[in-house]
Simulated assay, not measured.
Amino acid sequence: MKIGIISDTHGHEMAWAKAYDKHFHDADLILHAGDVLYHGPRNPMKADYNPAGLVERINHSDVPVVIARGNCDSSVDASCLETPILAPYAYVVWEGRRIIITHGDAVMTDAEKDAMAAHLKADVFISGHVHVTVLEQRGNTVFVNPGSAALSKRPDGRNTIAVWQDETIRIHDIDTDEVLAELTLPPKA
């Protein structure tokens, strides 16, 4: 099993291309935690800002993509994608693991995320929004924020994604491929 986890591409085509070509092309599934196409008024537009190109890449992905709606995702943007941008939350069960995907703007605090994860019995809780990576286990849930693939707010400025392969989730720098964090999931309950 291999799942690509990405968030906050904000219309930057090459961020998706790097993640897909290096890590996601052979995945079983890609989970996107929102803010897909629009750069957002607080974010800079980088040279690879090309939402139309990103739409084409996502629409032609050989790997199925599940997208939770972010605060910068509009109905107009969603109408361009063949993959629907779902509600603020997506719930996926994959190989017996319950996975919640949300952008994170509606559940900002760890307490809010913990409560939602417990209520939905999530094994893995994926969020984005803050453009900073998180990979930690709290209680029975592993919390993952892959950071931003395009507009990092990490202190080191690295653009990041996550890859869940077998029972291990790794945060990768998409430029250097360096593994920045790693966590093995607990056994299934």
Rank of each mutant, 00 (worst) to 15 (best):
M1Y: 10
K2N: 07
G4H: 06
G4W: 05
I5L: 09
I5D: 03
T9M: 14
H10L: 11
H12Y: 01
E13W: 02
E13Q: 13
M14T: 08
M14D: 04
A15E: 14
A15V: 14
K18W: 06
A19Q: 02
A19N: 03
A19R: 03
A19H: 04
Y20R: 01
H25T: 08
H25R: 09
D26E: 08
A27R: 01
D28G: 09
L29I: 08
L31Q: 05
L31F: 01
H32K: 07
G34P: 03
G34E: 08
H39W: 10
G40R: 03
P41Y: 12
P41G: 05
R42C: 03
R42I: 12
P44N: 10
M45T: 14
A47I: 07
D48S: 07
P51T: 04
P51G: 11
E56Y: 13
N59H: 01
D62M: 10
V63H: 02
V63P: 00
P64V: 15
V66F: 08
V66K: 06
A68E: 04
R69L: 14
G70C: 14
N71A: 10
N71V: 15
N71P: 09
D73W: 07
S74T: 15
S75P: 05
S75A: 15
D77W: 01
C80K: 00
L81R: 07
L81M: 13
L81I: 07
E82N: 01
T83Q: 04
T83C: 04
I85G: 09
I85A: 08
I85M: 14
A87S: 11
P88N: 13
Y89M: 09
Y89R: 10
R98S: 13
R98N: 13
I99F: 05
I99G: 01
I99Q: 03
T102D: 06
H103W: 02
H103F: 04
H103Q: 03
D110Y: 02
A111D: 04
A111W: 01
A111G: 05
E112S: 05
K113S: 04
K113A: 12
A117M: 11
A117P: 03
H119C: 12
L120I: 11
K121N: 07
K121Q: 08
K121H: 04
D123L: 15
I126C: 03
I126Q: 00
S127P: 07
G128E: 13
G128Y: 11
H129G: 13
V130C: 14
H131D: 12
H131T: 14
V132F: 00
L135I: 15
E136F: 09
E136P: 03
E136W: 05
N140H: 08
T141I: 11
F143N: 01
V144L: 05
N145A: 12
N145D: 15
P146E: 08
P146K: 06
G147H: 03
A149V: 02
A150V: 02
K153M: 15
R154K: 10
P155V: 15
R158M: 11
T160Q: 08
W164C: 06
W164S: 02
Q165A: 05
Q165M: 10
D166R: 12
E167Y: 14
T168G: 13
I169K: 10
I171N: 01
H172Q: 08
D173C: 09
I174P: 00
D177W: 11
E178T: 13
V179G: 06
L180P: 00
A181C: 13
A181D: 15
E182N: 05
E182V: 13
E182L: 14
P186S: 10
P186N: 06
